[in-house]
Amino acid sequence: MADSTGSAEAPEPAETRRSDGAAANSEIAAAFNDGPAFIPYLAVGDPSYEASKEYVEALARGGADIIELGLPFSEPIAEGPTIQGAIVRALEAGMTPNRYFEFVEDLAVDVPLVCMTYYNLIYQYSYDGDSEAQRASDASGGAASTGPAAFVARAAEAGISGLVVPDLPAEEADPLRAACDEHGLDLVFIVAPTTEGERLQSMMERVSGYVYVQARLGTTGTKSDVSDQTDRSLQRLSEWDVPKAVGFGISSGDQAERIVASGADGIIVGSALVDIVADGVDNDWSTEETAAKLESKAEELAKGATRGR
């Protein structure tokens, strides 16, 4: 597990800085230092707590530089059918925010972890146990026992390095950004093909860690072609000094190679991996079998990304 105290206290100076000067999480910055970053996503708890843990560890063995861990929400409006399916399986198996943080603490991986979830779970968050973060909060007046501050405190304590919240636009993000700054977490924003002008500027002022470049319009899901909207988006962001990671639709090593060759600093892959988990469920594969397939898919994608350099 990544050293959680490092992110909960004063972050070390990092190469990547937000334009307003706040330091980014040093572990995430470091993940982009040695060539293009491969950033896989899985929904935590899909199809069970134990199997999911094996799967995430397999991705780390397969060459993940950062892992996005989905915290399942009942109304995932940015997700296509594949990830919706994963979220339903995880919720049916009993995943909750507090269980999710236990999962993160249980993981035996040494890459930075980014929590991807929807704002209501952050807004409603209420810690149900005893923790350093909670005691510190209680000691300082206890204002943060619920909501964004409590969520981020608990995430930092569990070892999360950053957050992606697809239904939280930059305009509504100030409370969460303040909490992230306090705990040294990065807040990653998604730039869509439709994002231009002032909105782009407003995101540039608030983003840290990396920017999630949405390769095409629509919801998450694999596509055989990766849109030329990607090239245009990367072009628009060329002035930004945060790393640019491209997601939405990447499913093969060749696609990963192409995306990196066109200027991306990293690739984000979710649905193509969740498809393997779903196939495992449908075909009754053993946990080991599914984990092995995930590891080899991760290797293919990581190698593809490296070739594109």
Binding site: I77, A78, Y119, P166, D167, L168, P169, E171, E172, F189, I190, V191, A192, P193, T194, T195, E196, R199, M203, Q214, L217, G218
Partner: peptide, 19 residues
């Protein structure tokens, strides 16, 4: 900003914000 007290706002995926 479309706020009624604390209620309302625009909590949508980035792709929808321009629309």
């Amino acid at each position: 900003d479309g706020k009624f007290g604390d209620y309302g706002g625009q909590y949508v995926p980035e792709a929808l914000m321009p629309a």
